[in-house]
C-alpha cells in the first residue's frame, strides 16, 4: 500500500508522514494540490489523505483532478473544519472519510487501511 499525505502546513504533514513510516506504511507527502497532482501522475497511490482548505487549490479540486486520471485512488479528508456542509460535500464528491484534526493516529491509520481495502 502506498499513501500520499497532502497538507499546506509542512510541520504537520512531515511529522505525520514520519509516524506512518514508523508503522511500516510507504508514505509520501506534499504541501500543495498542484504538487499532489504531479506526484499522482508519477506514482500509483492507493490512498490520499488531504486537507480540505489549502491555498490556491482546495482539497476537493485536487481530488477531482486526480480522479480524472486515477479513479481508483481513495481519498480521506483530514481537516480542522467541523462543518456539516463541508462533510456532506466531500462525501458526495466521493471521499471515503472525513476526519477532524487533531486525530488519533490509530483512528487515521484504521481508516486508511479500510479505504485501501474497498
Amino acid at each position: 500500500m502506498k499513501v500520499l499525505l497532502i497538507d499546506d502546513e509542512e510541520e504537520f504533514v512531515t511529522t505525520l508522514a514520519e509516524r506512518f513510516s514508523l508503522r511500516g506504511i510507504d508514505t509520501d507527502w506534499v504541501t500543495s494540490g498542484s504538487d499532489a497532482i504531479r506526484r499522482a501522475d508519477l506514482t500509483r497511490y492507493d490512498v490520499v489523505v488531504i486537507d480540505v482548505k489549502m491555498p490556491q487549490m482546495p482539497g476537493l479540486d485536487v481530488m477531482e483532478s486526480i480522479h480524472k486520471k486515477h479513479p481508483n485512488v481513495k481519498f480521506i479528508f483530514l481537516t480542522g473544519y467541523s462543518s456539516k456542509e463541508c462533510y456532506r460535500a466531500c462525501k458526495e464528491a466521493g471521499a471515503c472519510d472525513y476526519l477532524i484534526k487533531p486525530v488519533k493516529i490509530e483512528t487515521l491509520i484504521e481508516k486508511v487501511l479500510e479505504a485501501a481495502q474497498t
Partner: peptide
C-alpha cells in the same frame, strides 16, 4: 489554533512513537 494543536498532537505523538 486548531492547526497548531494538530501539529502539537503529531509532534507529541512522534515522541511517544520513538
Amino acid at each position: 489554533i486548531k492547526n497548531y494543536l494538530a501539529i502539537i498532537n503529531e509532534k507529541a505523538g512522534l515522541v511517544g512513537d520513538l
